[in-house]
Simulated scan of single mutants.
Amino acid sequence: MSYAGQVTTPEAEQAQDETPEQAPQDGGARPEERLEKAVRAAEQALIEYEIAVETFRVEVENFSRLHHQKLGPMYARLDELDALIAEAVAARSGDPEDRRKAAEARARVLPMPGVDELFHGWMDGDGLLPEAAAMLTDQSVRPPQRVRPSDEARKLYRELVRKAHPDLAQDEQERERRDAFIARVNAAYGRGDEALLRELHEEWDAGPVPDERRPTPSEELYARLEWLAQRKELLSVVARELEESAIGAMLKLAPDDPDRLLDEIAEQLLAQVAEREAELEQLRGRVT
């Protein structure tokens, strides 16, 4: 089984390498005890890998949002300039092929947003949002809240998932309780809500203590190992899709400082915009 390097952690890498055959052996232990050790090792490997995949998914999602907010207008401006340049070339040459290229370039330009889209993020059912009101009254606009989880939030998230992961449940009722709790943990982590993660940490610690693992038949343990392996394969597919996506590939270029990467891309786009504007001005000068 192969795993993408971007979404691993030291704990996950160690756990991934510990297969049932490599799990600690105890010559005097009964077969079921050795199987139980293998199951526990596989469970921990899956949990660590799932934490790594979810952490990277949140990073990709947040970077995608920031990328769209910061660079979206620049990409739109470049598309508009490309269309204007193609139209100027077609007007100058009169060539049918140039007209076709101009029509294609214009088709790539995003249409003007509707009224609802224009007001999205500025107005809700109660009227103008604080950021919109501040801008209209020439007051300082509060910068958008960072959505990238802090290091402390990441630490809390990892600890919570290790403690409350549904795969550690001993029965269906306990699994449902853990599923509901982890959903709240994931939502808090996705928003980077460090305070709420601390509250969830305290809530779990104060909750019921899971029963000790009870001995299980060998057939059930083997089935458990097979399910864990299948689950890990599915996560590997998700990890590969994240890493091979355009945003995932960009994020891998600067995983420790994605804001710097956005600034660098913005500078490159601004330079391209300036080049296109100069080219358009030159073409319009020739036409006139």
Results as ranks from 00 to 15, higher is better:
G27K: 09
S2A: 14
H67L: 10
E50S: 12
A76S: 12
D259C: 02
F181N: 03
P113D: 03
E212K: 15
H165E: 07
Y3S: 11
E32D: 09
R260Q: 13
G248S: 03
A132W: 00
L262Q: 01
F56M: 08
A271S: 12
R142W: 07
P166Q: 04
Q69C: 01
I247C: 01
D82M: 03
P258S: 03
E220G: 12
K252D: 14
E54K: 13
W122D: 11
R286F: 15
T8G: 10
K70N: 08
L197R: 00
D95N: 15
E220R: 15
A188F: 06
T8C: 11
V89S: 06
L235T: 00
E212M: 10
L270D: 14
E104G: 01
P73E: 03
A41K: 11
K70P: 02
R65A: 13
I265T: 09
E199V: 05
L136N: 02
Q16I: 15
R142I: 09
A180W: 06
S218W: 01
E281S: 13
A254W: 05
N62R: 14
K232L: 14
V60G: 00
S2F: 13
Q272L: 13
R92S: 15
G192N: 06
E203L: 08
G127Q: 07
P215A: 12
S150L: 06
A107Q: 12
P258K: 00
L156N: 04
A195I: 10
R284E: 14
M135I: 11
L197H: 00
P255M: 05
L81S: 05
R276K: 13
H201G: 15
L84Y: 08
L228A: 04
D259S: 10
E226H: 11
H67G: 06
A76K: 09
E199Q: 15
T55S: 11
M1V: 13
P210Y: 01
E18P: 00
A164D: 02
E11F: 09
A195F: 08
D98S: 11
F119H: 05
D205C: 11
D82V: 00
P258E: 02
V89T: 13
A239T: 00
G72E: 07
Q272C: 04
E87P: 03
I247P: 03
L280C: 04
M112C: 07
V7P: 03
Q230S: 14
L225K: 04
Q6M: 11
R276G: 00
L168V: 04
T288C: 05
A188L: 06
V237P: 02
T19M: 07
